[in-house]
Design a protein around this nucleic acid. Structure first.
Length: 410
DNA sequence: CTTAGGG
DNA sequence: CCCTAAG
């Protein structure tokens, strides 16, 4: 097989994954009117880093990033990048603008209306939180430059909002007559036009495959069997390393972190170790585990079950979960290149970093430093991780971690 | 390219 | 954190 063939196949698989990703994120959105940013961000970041020339793929990745922002829209305190003063919904409005830039005539008005609605909502969410100062700033940013379009109704609306802002009343009818969920519904109705409702190719492939490969009930109810997806990649002659993003492993890690955090919240009620539930395979010999795929069944069910918002993640994870600016990252070749770049000299380990590391070791096992590295998306090398583990043992920090997160499997 | 272990 | 041997 020539390398050109391989490239093309990789491209195809990449497309499929994008397609599949949109499918997953969109389904989340319409079903629960929410998108789990902390999980889907891995997907989006990976996609953003891919070299995908197809216009549709770019649109799709914009769509997904928009959905994540809409989900966060209630909380105007969130910022998607550090030096931005824009609130989530303002940020989302920018993404939307790009998304609908060359929208076709029949939809043009709808698009503009929705964009307007989003800008209003950006003001409203501040008002609902009784923060009229921020609301005012958002308003000025979003509504000041509408001089170019002197439509009457727009002006009217603008004045209405201005009046509302003056009252400083969070119970104003403008705010109470529409909930945020109504806005999401509106979003859903409009954004339908951007999502391909057909089944993703990758999913179709996987489904046709799993019919005769397994009778596992989990796989039957249309849910995705990631193992099958990977198999498809294999059969396409695409090496897993380059084609299959390691967000799968990252997700496993994140889920584990969430579980542990929730467990900690419930605290002393039960003595059950979170490990026992999340890492069923412990009898494997190290050699065997090395070749086993990431626990597929667990990730399968997670696809459908990551519904709840988790506001209790530790700060390190939240930091790590910030979305990249799609506008700037979309053309970059390698997502890993854009990660927190290492200082030239030595970088001390932060406690939160060590905690994440320890939990990663719990998931992937001692010695699988490479996989741990990928899951953590850290700039540190496998060897550094190995050395860190050694010093954790030597210094006795292991005891602190053991108390915090439980034992680590051998 | 990965990991283990010595320095 | 680096180096190197071994898989």
């Amino acid at each position: 097989m020539s390398t050109a063939d391989l490239d093309e196949k990789q491209q195809t698989v990449t497309r499929w994954i994008v397609e599949y990703a949109v499918f997953v994120v969109w389904n989340d959105f319409v079903k629960h009117k929410t998108v789990d940013r902390n999980n889907n961000r891995d997907l989006i970041q990976w996609i953003a880093g891919q070299i995908i020339t197809g216009k549709r793929e770019i649109q799709q990745s914009y769509l997904m990033s928009l959905l994540c922002r809409l989900n966060d829209g209630r909380n105007y305190m969130i910022r998607y990048n550090e030096d931005s003063i824009l609130t989530v919904l303002e940020d989302a409005a920018e993404v939307l603008q790009i998304l609908i830039k060359d929208i076709k005539p029949p939809l043009y008005k709808e698009g503009q209306d929705f964009l307007k609605a989003m800008r209003q909502e950006a003001v409203y969410v501040c008002c609902r939180a009784n923060n009229f100062d921020d609301a005012k700033e958002v308003f000025n940013r979003q509504f000041s430059s509408s001089a170019d379009k002197g439509a009457e109704d727009k002006e009217h609306n603008k004045q209405e909002i201005q009046k509302m802002l003056k009252t400083k009343n969070p119970q104003h009818h403008l705010l109470t007559s529409h909930e945020y969920d109504d806005f999401l519904l509106k979003a859903q109705n409009f954004l339908k036009h951007f999502v391909n409702t057909g089944k993703p190719s990758l999913l179709k492939m996987a489904e046709s495959r799993q019919d005769h490969t397994t009778a596992d009930p989990i796989c039957r109810d249309k849910r995705v069997n990631l193992g099958s997806l990977m198999k498809v990649c294999d059969e396409m002659g695409v090496s897993k390393e380059s084609s299959w993003p390691n967000f799968m492993e990252q997700r496993a890690l994140k889920e584990h972190l969430q579980q542990v955090n929730q467990e900690k919240k419930k605290q002393s009620n039960t003595n059950i170790n979170a490990n026992a539930a999340s890492t069923p395979t412990k009898e494997c010999s190290p050699k065997k585990r090395k070749h086993a795929a990431v626990d597929e069944s667990r990730m399968d069910t997670s696809l459908a079950s990551r519904v709840q918002e988790n506001s209790n993640l530790n700060p390190y994870v939240i930091l790590n979960a910030e979305l990249p600016q799609l506008q700037t990252k979309i053309n970059e070749k390698s997502p890993t290149k854009s990660l927190p770049s290492p200082g030239k000299l030595r970088n001390p380990w932060l406690e939160a970093e060590v905690n994440e590391f320890y939990q990663a070791v719990q998931i992937f096992g001692i010695g699988n430093w490479s996989r741990i590295k990928n899951a953590m998306r850290t700039y540190r090398t496998n060897v550094q991780l190995k050395d860190k583990w050694r010093t954790i043992l030597k210094t006795g920090e292991i005891n602190r971690l053991k108390k915090l997160f439980g034992d680590v499997k051998k």
